[in-house]
Design a protein around this nucleic acid. Structure first.
Lengths: 179, 179
DNA sequence: TAGGATCCGGAGTAATGACTCCGATTAATC
DNA sequence: GATTAATCGGAGTCATTACTCCGGATCCTA
């Protein structure tokens, strides 16, 4: 993306910071200090702020990474044969894997997804999810009166609830099925 | 509760602070500053800290108030005839009324309810909710494989999801019904 | 209504956290 | 290996907050 490619050490640090930030935000919440992230990443604070001039921009970058992962997953499932399995695999998969990522998921919800992430990726996720949903609805596996918006809200809700009571996921997915 | 009753102005201020704090936490999140609360309540910062020596203690007090309200509501519904209506009235009522209180609800969930509140009130809520749930389950209106823990987790989850997508409440309550 | 106990207000303190700056360091190029 | 431009590290700045302290205001009692 930048006109000149990053120097080797710069690229290494940038990746390390991003990866560490994701872990720290997940563990300590989005209010974790930038210094903590720098320490764990093994770099100076200055380095963090050169790559991400603002704490918010760092959060956005982490979010973008997350959304990209989700989008890839959804894309992959578009090829599946069984629309019901595809949809519910995505749903439960995301929820179960996000057990530790709730702080970020929360920020994701608050930011409305689209605004915080580069809209290409967010759009891809949204589009893939929309297709998964439509197919599942068409196959009669998911109630017809909800949209992508509801599914995303319920994804976030389920992710949190599952931490408190794992059975919640079952309740929510069962609620997604036609009455 | 205190050996000596509070002076009139002290009692007035205490109540005003509690009430203001609930509103501010709901509007700005639990990270809202104590000064903001003091300003809106029309008292000095010192006054806030005399009544609640710690910000955390203030949050706990607000939480206790909230839980007390919920407990009363649940108690009131114990007298109802129709177990199904009683349970779902409580559930949807709490969710819809909590639209603005999510920050506190969240803290409530994080604190595990029982720890943060004086356990009497929390216990009362828990007991009343347990009864509502059991009766509804006995009447075949709610799936039998969940407990109070799940219901509370889903209450919080639904409260958040409803803000993003109102239809989510429908999905979750429908998931609570037997398969 | 006077006296004393209680309570109030808000300037001040200490700690924390986001962000800046620049001398030291390192990677790319010859 | 020498040069230079990009990058790094972390001490320092500024703003924000939770919390303290005490002179003055307010309430209760006799």
């Amino acid at each position: 993306m930048p006109a000149r490619p990053l120097r080797a050490d710069a690229a290494r640090n940038r990746a390390k910071i991003l990866q560490t930030a994701e872990a720290v935000f997940a563990e300590l919440g989005t209010s974790a200090s930038t210094e903590e992230i720098a320490r764990r990443a093994g770099v100076g604070i200055g380095t963090v702020f050169r790559h991400f001039p603002t704490k918010e921009s760092l959060l956005e970058a982490v979010l973008a990474e997350l959304v990209r992962g989700l989008a890839e997953e959804a894309d992959a499932l578009l090829a599946a044969d069984d629309p019901e399995a595809a949809f519910f695999t995505f749903f439960t998969g995301v929820v179960q894997r996000s057990t530790a990522k709730n702080a970020v998921m929360q920020a994701l919800a608050a930011a409305g997804v689209a605004t915080a992430t580069d809209s290409d990726t967010a759009g891809r996720l949204r589009a893939a999810l929309a297709t998964l949903l439509e197919r599942a609805q068409h196959a009669g596996a998911v109630r017809a009166d909800i949209g992508v918006r509801e599914v995303m809200a319920l994804l976030v809700a389920a992710s949190r609830a599952v931490e408190e009571a794992p059975m919640s996921l079952e309740v929510i997915t069962s609620g997604l099925r036609p009455a």
